[in-house]
Amino acid sequence: MNSINWYKYSSPATFYGLAGKLIPWFYSAAALFCVAGLYLGLVLAPTDFQQSDAYRIIFIHVPAAWMSMFIYVVMACWAALGLAFNTRLSFMMASALAPTGAMLTFVSLWTGALWGKPTWGAWWVWDARLTSELILFFLYLGFMALQAAIDDPRRADRAGALIALVGVVNVPIIYFSVRWWNTLHQGASVSMTKAPSMAAIMLVGMLVMALAAWMYAIAAALSRARSIILEREKNSQWVAQMVEAEV
């Protein structure tokens, strides 16, 4: 019986080639979704009766916030896989995701502040949602700093995996913060359980931008993963052959 070789793409050399082929597709998908999303959100969507045009920040704020949480969960999954199967590539994927996750968390905090100033009258409040998102940002920075501080890649991987797994409990806290505490931040306008309380075109624009953010995050993480693979596999034959072919 032709059993599936699950480990085929877990070898850095094979994954390196596969990722190389996929990256351009993800970047172009991200660009396409972004153009479509921005056109919907910035050009076609009407002004909001309450917030006038300040609400258009939603097309960046929400996708970035969703991705910041989603990426951390994906990092935790890679960390768990790496610890369970001892596959170095899983740890490399977690390390490849962290900078993009940190950047999107910062974008979410930044756009939130610029949205909050005109609508709440404050750049920042120690609100449950905002504070837990800020903690997420520090967790990302902590993951990267810890990995940078440890020379031996294998020990750095395990330390990073620990922060990823321990910190992942913060993600549901962020998500449910608006329900558990009386927060200034509004509740979920979009949820799995009830119909979204948003105008259709605004919702579609936001969802398309969320897809753009997702495609971008994949492309960026795969691209960084390839560089990490090269750095950590530089002594092996396949890297030598590939680089010699290029030289």
């Binding site: 006038s52 045009d53 300040a54 920040i57 960046i60 704020h61 974008v107 756009t111 610029l114 100033k117």
Partner: peptide, 16 residues
């Protein structure tokens, strides 16, 4: 002009 919110909207999009 973005309905008077130009700074906040373009400040968000620009930095991103």
């Amino acid at each position: 002009h973005m309905g008077g919110y130009a700074f906040y909207v373009w400040g968000s999009y620009g930095v991103t």
